[in-house]
Design a protein around this nucleic acid. Structure first.
Lengths: 199, 199
DNA sequence: TGTACATCAGTGAACGCGCGTTCACTGATGTAC
DNA sequence: TGTACATCAGTGAACGCGCGTTCACTGATGTAC
Protein backbone atom coordinates (compact mmCIF):
# COMPACT_ATOMS: atom_id res chain seq x y z
CA UNK A 1 0.00 0.00 0.00
CA UNK A 2 2.37 2.73 -1.19
CA UNK A 3 1.55 6.38 -0.48
CA UNK A 4 -0.87 7.32 2.24
CA UNK A 5 -4.55 7.14 1.34
CA UNK A 6 -4.85 10.86 1.98
CA UNK A 7 -2.16 11.67 -0.57
CA UNK A 8 -4.35 11.34 -3.65
CA UNK A 9 -7.07 13.42 -2.04
CA UNK A 10 -4.65 16.22 -1.22
CA UNK A 11 -3.06 16.38 -4.63
CA UNK A 12 -6.45 16.34 -6.29
CA UNK A 13 -7.55 19.22 -4.12
CA UNK A 14 -4.40 21.17 -5.00
CA UNK A 15 -5.13 20.68 -8.70
CA UNK A 16 -8.75 21.83 -8.36
CA UNK A 17 -7.75 24.87 -6.35
CA UNK A 18 -5.04 25.88 -8.80
CA UNK A 19 -7.42 25.31 -11.70
CA UNK A 20 -10.06 27.51 -10.10
CA UNK A 21 -7.51 30.31 -9.85
CA UNK A 22 -6.17 29.90 -13.38
CA UNK A 23 -9.63 29.62 -14.96
CA UNK A 24 -10.63 32.78 -13.13
CA UNK A 25 -7.62 34.57 -14.57
CA UNK A 26 -7.53 33.36 -18.15
CA UNK A 27 -10.76 31.52 -18.87
CA UNK A 28 -11.33 27.82 -19.45
CA UNK A 29 -9.85 27.23 -22.88
CA UNK A 30 -6.76 29.40 -22.39
CA UNK A 31 -5.55 27.25 -19.50
CA UNK A 32 -3.80 24.14 -20.80
CA UNK A 33 -3.47 20.98 -18.78
CA UNK A 34 0.28 21.23 -19.29
CA UNK A 35 0.46 24.68 -17.68
CA UNK A 36 -1.90 23.71 -14.91
CA UNK A 37 -0.07 20.55 -13.91
CA UNK A 38 3.29 22.30 -14.15
CA UNK A 39 2.13 25.02 -11.77
CA UNK A 40 1.06 22.32 -9.31
CA UNK A 41 4.54 20.82 -9.66
CA UNK A 42 3.57 17.81 -11.76
CA UNK A 43 3.60 16.84 -15.44
CA UNK A 44 0.70 16.61 -17.85
CA UNK A 45 0.42 12.84 -18.00
CA UNK A 46 -0.60 12.53 -14.38
CA UNK A 47 -3.71 14.59 -14.91
CA UNK A 48 -5.74 11.67 -16.19
CA UNK A 49 -5.31 9.59 -13.07
CA UNK A 50 -7.24 12.33 -11.26
CA UNK A 51 -9.86 13.43 -13.80
CA UNK A 52 -11.62 11.83 -16.72
CA UNK A 53 -11.07 14.95 -18.80
CA UNK A 54 -10.63 18.72 -18.65
CA UNK A 55 -14.35 19.42 -18.53
CA UNK A 56 -14.80 17.36 -15.36
CA UNK A 57 -12.13 19.46 -13.69
CA UNK A 58 -13.88 22.61 -14.85
CA UNK A 59 -17.10 21.65 -13.06
CA UNK A 60 -15.22 20.89 -9.86
CA UNK A 61 -13.22 24.11 -10.05
CA UNK A 62 -16.38 26.21 -10.36
CA UNK A 63 -18.10 24.35 -7.53
CA UNK A 64 -15.02 24.63 -5.32
CA UNK A 65 -15.66 28.34 -4.87
CA UNK A 66 -18.15 27.30 -2.21
CA UNK A 67 -15.25 25.93 -0.15
CA UNK A 68 -13.36 29.22 -0.06
CA UNK A 69 -14.81 32.69 -0.11
CA UNK A 70 -18.25 31.23 -0.71
CA UNK A 71 -18.08 29.14 2.47
CA UNK A 72 -17.00 32.18 4.40
CA UNK A 73 -20.09 34.07 3.25
CA UNK A 74 -22.34 31.19 4.17
CA UNK A 75 -20.79 30.78 7.59
CA UNK A 76 -21.22 34.45 8.39
CA UNK A 77 -24.80 34.28 7.18
CA UNK A 78 -25.53 31.40 9.54
CA UNK A 79 -24.08 33.15 12.55
CA UNK A 80 -25.63 36.56 12.14
CA UNK A 81 -29.10 35.39 11.17
CA UNK A 82 -30.21 35.97 14.75
CA UNK A 83 -30.33 39.75 14.53
CA UNK A 84 -33.06 39.56 11.93
CA UNK A 85 -30.80 38.84 8.99
CA UNK A 86 -30.81 42.24 7.34
CA UNK A 87 -27.30 42.94 8.64
CA UNK A 88 -26.19 39.75 6.94
CA UNK A 89 -27.67 40.76 3.62
CA UNK A 90 -26.14 44.19 3.91
CA UNK A 91 -22.72 42.74 4.66
CA UNK A 92 -23.01 40.31 1.76
CA UNK A 93 -23.89 43.05 -0.71
CA UNK A 94 -21.13 45.26 0.63
CA UNK A 95 -18.61 42.49 0.26
CA UNK A 96 -19.73 41.20 -3.12
CA UNK A 97 -19.83 44.63 -4.71
CA UNK A 98 -16.59 45.78 -3.08
CA UNK A 99 -13.54 46.98 -4.98
CA UNK A 100 -11.55 44.31 -3.15
CA UNK A 101 -13.72 41.59 -4.66
CA UNK A 102 -13.41 43.20 -8.09
CA UNK A 103 -9.63 43.34 -8.05
CA UNK A 104 -9.09 39.97 -6.34
CA UNK A 105 -9.34 38.03 -9.58
CA UNK A 106 -7.87 34.82 -8.15
CA UNK A 107 -10.58 34.47 -5.54
CA UNK A 108 -13.38 36.15 -7.40
CA UNK A 109 -16.79 34.56 -7.66
CA UNK A 110 -16.88 32.48 -10.88
CA UNK A 111 -20.31 33.87 -11.69
CA UNK A 112 -18.43 37.08 -12.44
CA UNK A 113 -15.27 35.63 -13.94
CA UNK A 114 -16.70 32.96 -16.22
CA UNK A 115 -20.32 33.50 -17.30
CA UNK A 116 -19.94 33.18 -21.05
CA UNK A 117 -17.42 30.36 -20.73
CA UNK A 118 -19.87 28.43 -18.59
CA UNK A 119 -22.84 29.13 -20.85
CA UNK A 120 -21.14 27.03 -23.55
CA UNK A 121 -19.71 24.32 -21.30
CA UNK A 122 -21.07 20.90 -20.35
CA UNK A 123 -24.24 20.40 -18.29
CA UNK A 124 -22.05 19.46 -15.32
CA UNK A 125 -20.28 22.81 -15.43
CA UNK A 126 -23.55 24.69 -15.75
CA UNK A 127 -24.89 22.73 -12.79
CA UNK A 128 -21.91 23.92 -10.75
CA UNK A 129 -22.60 27.51 -11.78
CA UNK A 130 -26.24 27.02 -10.83
CA UNK A 131 -25.21 25.87 -7.37
CA UNK A 132 -23.40 29.17 -6.87
CA UNK A 133 -26.46 31.15 -7.87
CA UNK A 134 -28.64 29.05 -5.60
CA UNK A 135 -26.25 29.59 -2.69
CA UNK A 136 -26.30 33.34 -3.24
CA UNK A 137 -30.06 33.74 -3.62
CA UNK A 138 -30.62 31.31 -0.72
CA UNK A 139 -28.44 33.52 1.46
CA UNK A 140 -30.48 36.56 0.50
CA UNK A 141 -33.85 34.87 0.72
CA UNK A 142 -33.16 33.38 4.12
CA UNK A 143 -32.34 36.74 5.60
CA UNK A 144 -34.93 39.08 4.14
CA UNK A 145 -37.92 40.39 6.05
CA UNK A 146 -40.60 39.86 3.40
CA UNK A 147 -42.32 36.56 2.92
CA UNK A 148 -43.22 34.14 0.15
CA UNK A 149 -43.09 35.15 -3.48
CA UNK A 150 -42.09 38.72 -2.79
CA UNK A 151 -39.12 37.65 -0.74
CA UNK A 152 -37.95 35.24 -3.40
CA UNK A 153 -38.33 37.88 -6.07
CA UNK A 154 -36.26 40.35 -4.10
CA UNK A 155 -33.57 37.73 -3.48
CA UNK A 156 -33.30 36.94 -7.19
CA UNK A 157 -33.26 40.61 -8.19
CA UNK A 158 -30.49 41.29 -5.67
CA UNK A 159 -28.52 38.41 -7.16
CA UNK A 160 -28.95 39.82 -10.66
CA UNK A 161 -27.90 43.26 -9.47
CA UNK A 162 -24.81 41.99 -7.67
CA UNK A 163 -23.62 39.76 -10.49
CA UNK A 164 -24.55 42.27 -13.21
CA UNK A 165 -22.79 45.15 -11.50
CA UNK A 166 -19.63 43.10 -11.12
CA UNK A 167 -19.67 41.57 -14.60
CA UNK A 168 -19.91 45.00 -16.17
CA UNK A 169 -17.26 46.46 -13.87
CA UNK A 170 -14.88 43.65 -14.63
CA UNK A 171 -15.31 43.78 -18.37
CA UNK A 172 -14.82 47.47 -19.05
CA UNK A 173 -11.52 49.33 -19.05
CA UNK A 174 -12.79 52.68 -17.85
CA UNK A 175 -12.12 52.39 -14.11
CA UNK A 176 -14.13 55.49 -13.29
CA UNK A 177 -17.21 54.07 -15.00
CA UNK A 178 -16.54 50.65 -13.51
CA UNK A 179 -16.54 52.14 -10.03
CA UNK A 180 -19.68 54.10 -10.79
CA UNK A 181 -21.54 51.02 -12.01
CA UNK A 182 -20.41 49.04 -8.99
CA UNK A 183 -21.36 51.90 -6.67
CA UNK A 184 -24.75 52.38 -8.32
CA UNK A 185 -25.54 48.68 -8.06
CA UNK A 186 -24.54 48.70 -4.41
CA UNK A 187 -26.62 51.79 -3.53
CA UNK A 188 -29.64 50.36 -5.29
CA UNK A 189 -29.24 46.93 -3.72
CA UNK A 190 -28.90 48.39 -0.23
CA UNK A 191 -31.86 50.70 -0.67
CA UNK A 192 -33.92 47.70 -1.74
CA UNK A 193 -33.53 46.45 1.82
CA UNK A 194 -35.99 49.15 2.89
CA UNK A 195 -33.50 51.10 4.93
CA UNK A 196 -32.30 54.43 3.71
CA UNK A 197 -28.57 54.47 3.28
CA UNK A 198 -26.37 57.50 3.75
CA UNK A 199 -24.65 58.72 0.65
CA UNK B 1 -10.82 49.26 -61.95
CA UNK B 2 -12.24 45.76 -61.51
CA UNK B 3 -15.16 45.18 -59.14
CA UNK B 4 -17.35 48.04 -58.04
CA UNK B 5 -16.01 50.17 -55.21
CA UNK B 6 -19.00 49.15 -53.09
CA UNK B 7 -18.20 45.46 -53.45
CA UNK B 8 -15.49 45.32 -50.80
CA UNK B 9 -17.63 47.25 -48.38
CA UNK B 10 -20.54 44.87 -48.79
CA UNK B 11 -18.51 41.70 -48.41
CA UNK B 12 -16.78 43.13 -45.36
CA UNK B 13 -20.14 43.92 -43.83
CA UNK B 14 -21.38 40.40 -44.50
CA UNK B 15 -18.32 38.96 -42.74
CA UNK B 16 -18.79 41.19 -39.70
CA UNK B 17 -22.48 40.36 -39.48
CA UNK B 18 -21.89 36.63 -39.76
CA UNK B 19 -19.08 36.85 -37.20
CA UNK B 20 -21.32 38.68 -34.74
CA UNK B 21 -23.86 35.86 -35.00
CA UNK B 22 -21.31 33.06 -34.72
CA UNK B 23 -19.46 34.67 -31.81
CA UNK B 24 -22.79 35.08 -30.03
CA UNK B 25 -23.50 31.39 -30.49
CA UNK B 26 -20.16 29.78 -29.75
CA UNK B 27 -17.86 32.39 -28.28
CA UNK B 28 -14.80 34.02 -29.77
CA UNK B 29 -12.21 31.26 -29.72
CA UNK B 30 -14.56 28.46 -30.82
CA UNK B 31 -15.28 30.20 -34.13
CA UNK B 32 -12.49 29.55 -36.62
CA UNK B 33 -11.75 31.83 -39.52
CA UNK B 34 -12.14 28.83 -41.78
CA UNK B 35 -15.70 28.16 -40.59
CA UNK B 36 -16.59 31.83 -40.65
CA UNK B 37 -15.39 32.47 -44.19
CA UNK B 38 -16.98 29.25 -45.42
CA UNK B 39 -20.35 30.28 -44.04
CA UNK B 40 -20.03 33.60 -45.87
CA UNK B 41 -19.28 31.61 -49.04
CA UNK B 42 -15.55 32.36 -49.24
CA UNK B 43 -12.31 30.61 -48.28
CA UNK B 44 -10.01 31.32 -45.37
CA UNK B 45 -7.23 33.02 -47.30
CA UNK B 46 -9.40 35.95 -48.26
CA UNK B 47 -9.97 36.96 -44.68
CA UNK B 48 -6.72 38.88 -44.42
CA UNK B 49 -7.52 41.26 -47.23
CA UNK B 50 -10.38 42.50 -45.03
CA UNK B 51 -8.96 42.39 -41.51
CA UNK B 52 -5.52 42.60 -39.96
CA UNK B 53 -6.33 39.67 -37.70
CA UNK B 54 -9.13 37.85 -35.88
CA UNK B 55 -9.10 40.22 -32.93
CA UNK B 56 -9.81 43.23 -35.12
CA UNK B 57 -12.87 41.45 -36.48
CA UNK B 58 -13.97 40.68 -32.94
CA UNK B 59 -14.05 44.35 -31.99
CA UNK B 60 -16.07 45.21 -35.09
CA UNK B 61 -18.48 42.36 -34.52
CA UNK B 62 -19.23 43.49 -30.98
CA UNK B 63 -19.63 47.10 -32.03
CA UNK B 64 -21.87 46.12 -34.95
CA UNK B 65 -24.67 45.26 -32.53
CA UNK B 66 -25.42 48.98 -32.51
CA UNK B 67 -26.36 48.71 -36.20
CA UNK B 68 -29.02 46.07 -35.64
CA UNK B 69 -31.18 45.58 -32.60
CA UNK B 70 -29.18 48.25 -30.80
CA UNK B 71 -29.96 50.85 -33.45
CA UNK B 72 -33.62 49.93 -33.24
CA UNK B 73 -33.63 50.62 -29.52
CA UNK B 74 -31.90 53.94 -29.98
CA UNK B 75 -34.26 55.01 -32.75
CA UNK B 76 -37.31 54.22 -30.65
CA UNK B 77 -35.78 56.08 -27.74
CA UNK B 78 -35.30 59.18 -29.88
CA UNK B 79 -38.86 59.18 -31.14
CA UNK B 80 -40.71 58.60 -27.91
CA UNK B 81 -38.69 60.93 -25.74
CA UNK B 82 -41.38 63.56 -26.14
CA UNK B 83 -43.83 61.95 -23.73
CA UNK B 84 -41.43 62.40 -20.86
CA UNK B 85 -39.26 59.42 -21.65
CA UNK B 86 -40.46 57.03 -18.97
CA UNK B 87 -42.39 55.05 -21.57
CA UNK B 88 -39.18 54.63 -23.49
CA UNK B 89 -37.31 53.32 -20.48
CA UNK B 90 -40.15 50.97 -19.68
CA UNK B 91 -40.22 49.63 -23.23
CA UNK B 92 -36.46 49.18 -23.23
CA UNK B 93 -36.49 47.20 -19.98
CA UNK B 94 -39.41 45.11 -21.20
CA UNK B 95 -37.63 44.32 -24.40
CA UNK B 96 -34.19 43.69 -22.97
CA UNK B 97 -35.45 41.38 -20.24
CA UNK B 98 -37.91 39.58 -22.52
CA UNK B 99 -37.89 35.85 -23.16
CA UNK B 100 -37.65 36.66 -26.89
CA UNK B 101 -34.34 38.43 -26.30
CA UNK B 102 -33.12 35.55 -24.14
CA UNK B 103 -33.84 32.88 -26.73
CA UNK B 104 -32.77 34.91 -29.77
CA UNK B 105 -29.13 34.04 -29.36
CA UNK B 106 -28.12 35.18 -32.85
CA UNK B 107 -29.27 38.74 -32.27
CA UNK B 108 -28.69 38.91 -28.56
CA UNK B 109 -26.85 41.82 -26.98
CA UNK B 110 -23.15 40.88 -26.78
CA UNK B 111 -23.00 42.24 -23.24
CA UNK B 112 -25.01 39.12 -22.37
CA UNK B 113 -23.46 36.66 -24.79
CA UNK B 114 -19.77 37.47 -24.40
CA UNK B 115 -18.83 39.13 -21.09
CA UNK B 116 -16.03 36.82 -19.98
CA UNK B 117 -14.70 36.45 -23.51
CA UNK B 118 -14.45 40.22 -23.80
CA UNK B 119 -12.90 40.67 -20.36
CA UNK B 120 -9.82 38.80 -21.66
CA UNK B 121 -9.74 40.26 -25.17
CA UNK B 122 -7.79 43.20 -26.61
CA UNK B 123 -8.39 46.81 -25.53
CA UNK B 124 -10.16 47.40 -28.87
CA UNK B 125 -12.69 44.69 -28.10
CA UNK B 126 -13.25 45.99 -24.59
CA UNK B 127 -13.74 49.46 -26.04
CA UNK B 128 -16.48 48.07 -28.28
CA UNK B 129 -18.14 46.44 -25.28
CA UNK B 130 -17.88 49.73 -23.42
CA UNK B 131 -19.67 51.51 -26.26
CA UNK B 132 -22.61 49.13 -25.81
CA UNK B 133 -22.79 49.85 -22.11
CA UNK B 134 -22.57 53.58 -22.75
CA UNK B 135 -25.37 53.37 -25.31
CA UNK B 136 -27.59 51.51 -22.88
CA UNK B 137 -26.99 53.74 -19.87
CA UNK B 138 -27.24 56.83 -22.09
CA UNK B 139 -30.65 55.65 -23.24
CA UNK B 140 -31.78 55.23 -19.64
CA UNK B 141 -30.19 58.43 -18.36
CA UNK B 142 -31.65 60.56 -21.13
CA UNK B 143 -35.16 59.41 -20.37
CA UNK B 144 -35.36 59.38 -16.60
CA UNK B 145 -37.11 62.03 -14.54
CA UNK B 146 -34.46 62.57 -11.87
CA UNK B 147 -31.55 64.89 -12.39
CA UNK B 148 -27.78 64.92 -11.99
CA UNK B 149 -25.97 62.31 -9.99
CA UNK B 150 -29.10 60.50 -8.89
CA UNK B 151 -30.26 60.08 -12.48
CA UNK B 152 -26.92 58.72 -13.57
CA UNK B 153 -26.82 56.33 -10.66
CA UNK B 154 -30.25 54.98 -11.50
CA UNK B 155 -29.31 54.58 -15.15
CA UNK B 156 -26.21 52.57 -14.25
CA UNK B 157 -28.07 50.42 -11.73
CA UNK B 158 -30.74 49.67 -14.32
CA UNK B 159 -28.01 48.63 -16.75
CA UNK B 160 -26.48 46.31 -14.17
CA UNK B 161 -29.87 44.82 -13.40
CA UNK B 162 -30.75 44.25 -17.05
CA UNK B 163 -27.41 42.72 -17.99
CA UNK B 164 -27.11 40.76 -14.76
CA UNK B 165 -30.59 39.29 -15.04
CA UNK B 166 -29.94 38.17 -18.60
CA UNK B 167 -26.43 36.82 -18.01
CA UNK B 168 -27.68 34.64 -15.18
CA UNK B 169 -30.73 33.51 -17.15
CA UNK B 170 -28.63 32.59 -20.12
CA UNK B 171 -26.03 30.67 -18.18
CA UNK B 172 -28.21 28.38 -16.09
CA UNK B 173 -30.03 25.28 -17.34
CA UNK B 174 -32.99 25.44 -15.00
CA UNK B 175 -35.50 27.27 -17.18
CA UNK B 176 -37.93 27.84 -14.33
CA UNK B 177 -35.26 29.60 -12.28
CA UNK B 178 -34.02 31.44 -15.37
CA UNK B 179 -37.49 32.83 -15.95
CA UNK B 180 -37.83 33.75 -12.29
CA UNK B 181 -34.53 35.64 -12.29
CA UNK B 182 -35.45 37.44 -15.48
CA UNK B 183 -38.92 38.24 -14.12
CA UNK B 184 -37.55 39.43 -10.79
CA UNK B 185 -35.03 41.70 -12.50
CA UNK B 186 -37.76 43.11 -14.71
CA UNK B 187 -40.18 43.77 -11.84
CA UNK B 188 -37.48 45.45 -9.81
CA UNK B 189 -36.25 47.54 -12.73
CA UNK B 190 -39.76 48.69 -13.58
CA UNK B 191 -40.59 49.53 -9.98
CA UNK B 192 -37.41 51.62 -9.84
CA UNK B 193 -39.09 53.93 -12.31
CA UNK B 194 -41.30 55.12 -9.49
CA UNK B 195 -44.50 53.77 -10.97
CA UNK B 196 -46.17 50.83 -9.34
CA UNK B 197 -46.50 47.96 -11.77
CA UNK B 198 -49.31 45.47 -11.75
CA UNK B 199 -48.27 41.94 -10.93
C1' DT C 1 17.13 -1.92 12.42
C1' DG C 2 17.64 -3.46 7.67
C1' DT C 3 16.25 -5.27 3.21
C1' DA C 4 13.32 -7.10 -0.60
C1' DC C 5 9.31 -6.10 -2.85
C1' DA C 6 4.53 -5.06 -4.75
C1' DT C 7 2.08 -1.03 -5.72
C1' DC C 8 0.76 2.78 -8.22
C1' DA C 9 1.75 8.05 -8.48
C1' DG C 10 3.93 10.40 -11.68
C1' DT C 11 6.72 10.77 -16.28
C1' DG C 12 7.31 12.33 -20.91
C1' DA C 13 7.31 10.87 -25.78
C1' DA C 14 3.96 10.35 -29.14
C1' DC C 15 -0.72 10.63 -31.38
C1' DG C 16 -3.90 13.17 -34.37
C1' DC C 17 -5.94 17.42 -34.84
C1' DG C 18 -7.32 22.16 -35.80
C1' DC C 19 -5.87 26.63 -35.31
C1' DG C 20 -4.23 31.68 -37.13
C1' DT C 21 -1.60 33.38 -40.56
C1' DT C 22 1.19 33.69 -45.02
C1' DC C 23 1.85 33.71 -49.86
C1' DA C 24 2.35 32.51 -54.72
C1' DC C 25 -1.35 31.86 -57.76
C1' DT C 26 -5.66 32.20 -60.65
C1' DG C 27 -9.40 33.87 -62.72
C1' DA C 28 -13.55 37.15 -62.71
C1' DT C 29 -14.17 41.90 -63.33
C1' DG C 30 -14.94 46.51 -65.64
C1' DT C 31 -12.37 49.50 -68.82
C1' DA C 32 -10.08 51.15 -72.93
C1' DC C 33 -10.01 51.06 -77.54
C1' DT D 1 -20.52 45.38 -80.51
C1' DG D 2 -16.24 42.90 -79.69
C1' DT D 3 -11.64 42.02 -77.85
C1' DA D 4 -7.27 42.65 -75.16
C1' DC D 5 -5.85 43.71 -70.80
C1' DA D 6 -4.57 45.48 -66.04
C1' DT D 7 -6.39 44.91 -61.59
C1' DC D 8 -7.11 42.75 -57.45
C1' DA D 9 -10.76 39.67 -54.98
C1' DG D 10 -10.50 35.30 -53.83
C1' DT D 11 -7.98 30.55 -53.64
C1' DG D 12 -5.92 26.78 -51.19
C1' DA D 13 -1.49 24.60 -50.02
C1' DA D 14 1.76 25.20 -46.56
C1' DC D 15 3.87 27.06 -42.17
C1' DG D 16 4.68 26.48 -37.22
C1' DC D 17 2.36 25.82 -33.15
C1' DG D 18 -0.04 24.19 -29.05
C1' DC D 19 -3.73 21.55 -27.68
C1' DG D 20 -6.22 17.20 -25.15
C1' DT D 21 -5.42 12.67 -24.58
C1' DT D 22 -2.95 8.01 -24.49
C1' DC D 23 0.33 4.76 -22.90
C1' DA D 24 4.48 2.10 -21.94
C1' DC D 25 7.64 3.20 -18.42
C1' DT D 26 10.12 4.43 -14.01
C1' DG D 27 11.01 5.12 -9.53
C1' DA D 28 9.39 6.67 -4.73
C1' DT D 29 6.58 4.76 -1.28
C1' DG D 30 5.12 2.03 2.96
C1' DT D 31 4.86 -2.83 4.22
C1' DA D 32 6.24 -7.49 5.33
C1' DC D 33 9.54 -10.14 7.18
Amino acid sequence: MPYSPAHKKEVRKRIVEQARIMFNRDGFSAVSIDQLMASVGLTRGGFYSYFRNKEELYAEAVASFLNGRGKQWRDEAGVEAENGGLDTVRAMIDSYLSSEHLSDIDSQCPMIALPSDVARASPEVRAAYLSLLRAMSWLFENNLAENGAERREKALALSALCVGGMVLSRTIDDTKLADDVRGAAKQTALSMLGVEVQR
